[in-house]
Design a binder for these strands. Structure first.
Lengths: 309, 309
DNA sequence: TGAAATAATGTAACCGGTTACTGTAACCGG
DNA sequence: CCGGTTACAGTAACCGGTTACATTATTTCA
């Protein structure tokens, strides 16, 4: 029997597990990758985490998850970096473009998730198509369902998905001759509770009757929107059409079933992590991947039949 | 200016971040805690993670998340342990009772989540009340809605919540004179996709008409159950009443709104993590915490009115 | 002002592995 | 049976901090 085999056997028998810190220190490798998120207040992260974790585990690495966002960046150091990981996935607005450039110039492997790299730093990135599909989604509300006063609940201010969806929203309005109305844009933060509160506020301050559709920004916010509309006795989709984004698992079973955009979120997590490992192992990975999205038409926009009569 | 202040200043100026591995090695502390999960295929983990992560961040620690379950425990070492963390939260059937006892006797701080400690190891634990509330939930179906052929989709075989909910289910049947029928228990794994497939299989193998209610085990599985029932043209709650467990954020907005048990999952995560830190900092924490649960009655069991007529 | 208390600096060992290098034993083909 | 290759063993330096202790500078106050 080879020595290495015998060694393995004895190590297992004696339940010897090498001390991670000592290995890390000596080998200058942690075998840990990090995932930096703005927050965890969204069911969106479940498929993302699944994609990430599956690849990380398969590679025998560990995964550190941390939240870090723009509001705390001046108080705290980023919890993840070259000092405790071999590389990281960035889905956070806490690291600004110049932070990314600095880390990148240090040779620290990174992959951006749902975020475009800074102009002069070739950091790989994985995201989904937002602008064109959002434009189509809004145009569907306008052309098929005759809606024109479309409320938009945007997401976090620095979040790129939010900005792009807003762009698609504005383009659709523009190309269909509907003036953009600042007053119809609320801050939903892509969170069901925030969206619920914001829409309540809007409706209770005389907003009722001022809108005939809502683009909730994402599916999680759609939950808050539906709850608020229901609480105010506004019928969906008859009085107000509602559309979301992401097609989370619950979307087909909301009341009414949610028309939304199917985003391959687990694939985003998986591909981003594979890119990160390609960077770790081959020191190379190519640029920006934009995964395709598609609209799923259900009841909440006015399409299809109500399932329960 | 004090020396330590000046030091801090220079450290910030020069962007010096101490190398984690070196600190860990020298100080024998990692300032990392681990969270061991069976899997991540469930929206249930979002509130749990939120509770855990909030406390971990507030304490300035890092969080490693890993999946580990009974099916892979013979192939791989647990990814989290004394070698790379200061303590861990265990929500996993991958570590057996004797593993826990071994780790505990090493003095490794652990807190069990949704799991009762082994008889002879005083490991703190945080979970929610399952048995009595499930019994009440099933009795509600029996007594208020007159159901008697109640399908149960149990969760993972070693998962304690699943076992306890099954116990509550059986007690309710027993105390109401309904014989337990093995044929009405399916393996839903607490996963929407598995539950969907299992219920489809059941219905298509002649199960249609053999049940008038479903206890889905948890809310995530409820999504699969509702989808399957809808696909087979079975009306909820008229033909089949459906109840879940957890009261995840989407539950009030399923179609129809889901009657379920409200479980304080974020609090479980928060309290469990606080217990872990109490163990880390004071080397002490007391026993088993069982958080109370309550039934939330909505449309899917037959209570309340349909929101959309 | 001088002795004691306190703060700062200097030094070396150590954490538990990895890495590189040197030396010895086993193996292989001609 | 020998030279050359390969497998294994032994040794020491090193990774980048922490810790403990000894030394020197500064402050405090009788």
């Amino acid at each position: 029997m080879e020595v290495s085999e015998r060694l393995q056997k004895v190590m297992t028998e004696m339940r010897y597990v090498p001390h991670a810190a000592a290995r890390h220190l000596a080998s200058r490798k942690t075998r840990v990758v990090g995932l930096l998120l703005n927050n965890l207040h969204n069911d969106f992260f479940v498929p993302l985490l699944n994609g990430v974790e599956a690849v990380v585990r398969q590679k025998g690495y560990n995964l550190i998850i941390a939240t870090y966002h723009a509001n705390i960046r001046n108080e705290t150091q980023p919890p993840i970096g070259p000092h405790n990981t071999d590389g990281m996935l960035v889905f956070s607005d806490g690291l600004m473009d110049n932070d990314l450039i600095a880390l990148n110039s240090l040779g620290f492997p990174m992959v951006l998730v749902h975020r475009t790299p800074p102009a002069d730093a070739p950091i790989p990135s994985v995201t989904v198509e937002n602008i064109e599909i959002t434009k189509q989604l809004i145009e569907h509300l306008i052309r098929v369902h005759g809606r024109s006063r479309i409320l938009f609940l945007r997401g976090p201010i620095h979040q790129e998905d939010s900005a792009r969806r807003e762009l698609g929203y504005r383009r659709a309005l523009e190309e269909n001759g509907i003036p953009y109305d600042e007053g119809l844009v609320l801050n939903g933060e892509f969170e069901r509770n925030v969206s619920y509160a914001e829409l309540n506020r809007f409706i209770e301050n005389g907003g009722k009757g001022k809108f005939d559709a809502v683009f909730t920004g994402d599916d999680d916010a759609a939950i808050g929107v539906l709850r608020s509309l229901q609480a105010h006795g506004i019928r969906v989709p008859e009085e107000v059409a509602v559309v979301g984004f992401d097609d989370l698992g619950f979307a087909p079973f909301l009341n009414p079933p949610l028309t939304t955009v199917r985003a391959p979120t687990e694939a985003v997590g998986r591909i981003a992590t594979e890119k990160l490992f390609s960077l770790l192992e081959n020191d190379f990975s190519d640029g920006v991947v934009i995964l395709p999205t598609e609209i799923v038409y259900r009841r909440s926009c006015g399409c299809a039949q109500a399932t329960y009569s």
